[in-house]
């Protein structure tokens, strides 16, 4: 029997997805402790896994994630990352991990990319500006188990999830970084259409991210930064009823049946992966 996994959920001023993120881990049998930004850095040490959830830490001043990335707590988190602990950053959490230089981590501690403001273009024309909240399809790009959150997820499997952000466009100053990431199997998620095809145009690529990238891990694979929200796709009922793909079919077929609607949604795979995969 596996001992309970203890997850530390880091809370910054402006975090706003704590409840549903904690719920997702707990539903999968993990214990969750909230660690507030102003607690001593030592309070963070020694957990089995870490998560930074969504929100607007420090009101996205300068650029989303920049200020939180410089909190003393993050030094402890970097040590835990170096020790191989699983770390998940969702949305604003991903922005913080990127700004802290934990992802992609080619040169640990260096900021190698950024999440820039959305560029929502179709046929060369900007069709929309600002915050965008919608369901999208994600294609799993890396080998199963490349990260502790993606065990048992086949390469190229398509999973619906939601995004909700104004700054979600992965950009690098040095384009060659992308080739390195591809070679290293560090690109974990890309946005795609119902059939798993990539398209540069909005809304299939919802923010203009390079190569439709939606999630990246570090070199070792234990730290995953992703813009979509798996905790909001935890139950089947959370999928919009007019959604395409087999997930949409399943959602409609479950109408009227609460047990079926509360059965696992696509996002639960990530939490289960963590809950089932750590050594005792």
């Amino acid at each position: 029997m596996i001992d309970t996994i203890h997850v530390a959920l880091i809370q910054f001023p402006g975090s706003n997805c704590e409840s549903e993120t904690a719920r997702a881990f707990r539903q999968c049998g993990c214990a969750v402790t909230m660690i507030r930004w102003n607690q001593p850095a030592s309070a963070l040490a020694g957990y089995d896994a870490y998560v930074i959830g969504g929100g607007f830490s420090y009101e996205d001043r300068v650029r989303a994630g920049v200020i939180a990335a410089k909190e003393p707590l993050m030094e402890t988190l970097a040590e835990e990352a170096a020790g191989g602990k699983p770390i998940l950053g969702i949305c604003n959490g991903a922005q913080v991990l990127i700004e802290a230089g934990l992802v992609p981590g080619l040169h640990p501690g260096q900021v190698e990319m950024a999440l820039a403001t959305n560029l929502m273009k179709r046929e060369g024309r900007v069709v929309r500006r600002g915050h965008h909240c919608h369901w999208i399809n994600l294609r799993h790009e890396s080998r199963p188990g490349r990260t502790p959150f993606t065990r048992g997820i086949d390469r190229h499997r398509v999973l619906p999830m939601t995004i909700s952000h104004g700054e979600g466009r992965f950009v690098c100053r040095d384009e060659s970084v992308w080739r390195t990431l591809e070679q290293n199997d560090q690109i974990v998620w890309r946005y795609c259409d119902d059939d798993g095809h990539l398209r540069d145009d909005f809304p299939i690529n919802p923010n203009g991210s390079w190569g439709s990238v939606a999630g990246i891990c570090n070199v070792e694979g234990n730290v995953l930064a992703m813009m979509p929200h798996p905790e909001r796709a935890f139950y089947l009922r959370q999928i919009p009823s007019a959604w395409g793909t087999a997930w949409g079919e399943q959602r409609r077929a479950a109408g009227g049946d609460r047990a079926a609607l509360e059965s696992p949604g696509p996002g639960r795979l990530l939490f289960r992966s963590l809950a089932g995969s750590l050594p005792a």
Binding site: N16, E20, G54, G130, H229, R232, F234, Y235, R237, Q238
Partner: peptide, 12 residues
Amino acid sequence: HHYDTEIQGNAI
């Protein structure tokens, strides 16, 4: 689509 409709995870 500017509004967050999904946060808190309770949307039906």
